[in-house]
Design a protein around this nucleic acid. Sequence first.
DNA 1: CCAGAATGTGCACACGTGTTCATATAGATG
DNA 2: CATCTATATGAACACGTGTGCACATTCTGG
Lengths: 338, 338
Amino acid sequence: MYGPSKRTRRATAADVARLAGVSRSAVSRAFTKGTYLDAEKRERILLAAEEIGYRPNALAAGLQGQQSNLVAIFVGDMPNQYDKEAAASLATGLNAAGKWPIMIGGSDAVARAAASRVLSFPLEAMILRSGSLGADVAATCIKMGVPVISSGRIIEQDGVDNICVRNREGMREGVAHLIKGGCQRIAYIGGPSSFSSAPERRAGCLDALGGLELIAECEGLYTMESGYDAARALLKERRPDAFVCANDAMALGAMTYLREAGVCIPDDIALLGFDDIEMSGWPAFDLTTIRNPIDDMVAAITELLHRRAMDPAKEGEVILLDTKLVKRSSSRRLLPDR
Amino acid sequence: MYGPSKRTRRATAADVARLAGVSRSAVSRAFTKGTYLDAEKRERILLAAEEIGYRPNALAAGLQGQQSNLVAIFVGDMPNQYDKEAAASLATGLNAAGKWPIMIGGSDAVARAAASRVLSFPLEAMILRSGSLGADVAATCIKMGVPVISSGRIIEQDGVDNICVRNREGMREGVAHLIKGGCQRIAYIGGPSSFSSAPERRAGCLDALGGLELIAECEGLYTMESGYDAARALLKERRPDAFVCANDAMALGAMTYLREAGVCIPDDIALLGFDDIEMSGWPAFDLTTIRNPIDDMVAAITELLHRRAMDPAKEGEVILLDTKLVKRSSSRRLLPDR
DNA sequence: CCAGAATGTGCACACGTGTTCATATAGATG
DNA sequence: CATCTATATGAACACGTGTGCACATTCTGG
């Protein structure tokens, strides 16, 4: 042990070459498919590499025009459950596709600064999964030549690929289900207007109402607490027979308040959410909701990543995902289903 | 537009130099603090860089002995809520510390393979946040000269830094609180024995019982469903007055079953969890639990990262985190407290 | 005015890898 | 045997950057 700092030096191809008694080129070839190299020699090299813990340095390889496989995922501060679940699935999905997802998150200022700095890596793409901000981040990426994939919010910009769920159609189907079940006096708990999903889901609700108007309405923050508060506020007004919520977190908050208030679900008031987060399926809640399909989203993103790699100059496209109405007990009225 | 593939070429320092009419060295210096460079010239360079969207290539810089700031986070399949919350906080925390967290996750085989391949990057550390597996991954990392930080499970191996919560002491305090509140017939829902936290927490429970024995006991999977099933199974046995659960997810599952069964919490049966996941604080649950401090964990990890950077050859150390008993209504007995 | 320090700048090297190129050897084909 | 092809291998280059080095210029103090 000559120098303490030397101890941690990473093994290099030259080290392996020396140990195996071959040229450095041979070592490189040993790790590359489809090259001419004596089989016995290759084995000897791989063995030597294993012995001293060598692996080709991805940084140096990337410098050589090799695919970096690095991908950044920009999540906001992930306030609600759905964002967390989506981020986790996305990361593991990319992983399975051989990509290396770098997570960028935290509070607005921190995340935005990090998003800017991470561009010093030759990213294969920047994936935006933050409902609210992101348009300026996208602009910076495009300028740097880094492809952008926006999920959950459509960004109108050259070269930006978009993935979005059919918010309006989904909500329309959900509310239609409530109406078919006998609900007539519907109150709506909406999301913050800074999220593009909020007005779309509200529009879907109005679609299903036909000419009818909402009994009452207010705007929440997509959090459970705000759903709780909203339910309390709306209950004071003209007695509704259904709460339609722009996402599951708020629906679960509303459910909590209604139970505390002694309201029977769904007989007195039916409840509808949006997203189908894991918790909504738990027996304790059993919330009827509209599934925002995470697996489809992940599949679409890896697909877009692939297409972009094939043709870096291709036009940006928009992929729309279908929702699925998940009927559970929070909407199972005892009234005759028409 | 001469060639379509040329279009996406990343801007290089030489491009900036040409545009700004300076040497390439000057460009490099413009982006480095503490170098001699005419102020007016630096500004001109930065402006030119901004114009063509240039940023120093982290790959090439890393090749130069520069810190990579890359960190891998190995999470298992994140079956339970606490893992998801911890992973999210860890990622954003590292972010704020100027690190780039690469998430590695998914099913066992996929994650393990990915963990091996990610070592081709010059990682500053591999952070293990998977309760069960990980020892073999750690061995590979150490061999490659990549420092390992294990969180939630202590790995006895040279050069591995460990962070762990005081499971035993925490659980002891929690159960003592129940006993002080009048509980005498305690049933225990444990975690899978493959997680090192499971036996520790159980030991803490037994500590608090003094000579007493558990009324009943079974082993769950740290999931809500298994907690639900366990509660049903245990309720058939000699009537307990408290359920102690090895984590919050199982406690919430148990709570769900008990409510369905018409059992009053906490008057008939008190409930104790472990972790203090976000949901436990929601009014719908209001679960008494032992906080597994995520913020402290993140702080400890960044601290260890720093120390390791200062002295790469230092010995591995063990940091133990203190829990905090969070008293909520699931343990608030009407019986006189003492 | 002079010596020395402080500041500014370009050249050239090193980092670790993949790959082209030239060359050498062995095997097949006529 | 002569040619041609398939296989094997090392030398050399390129990737984009940070920085040591040598040299030029300006400033400071006597």
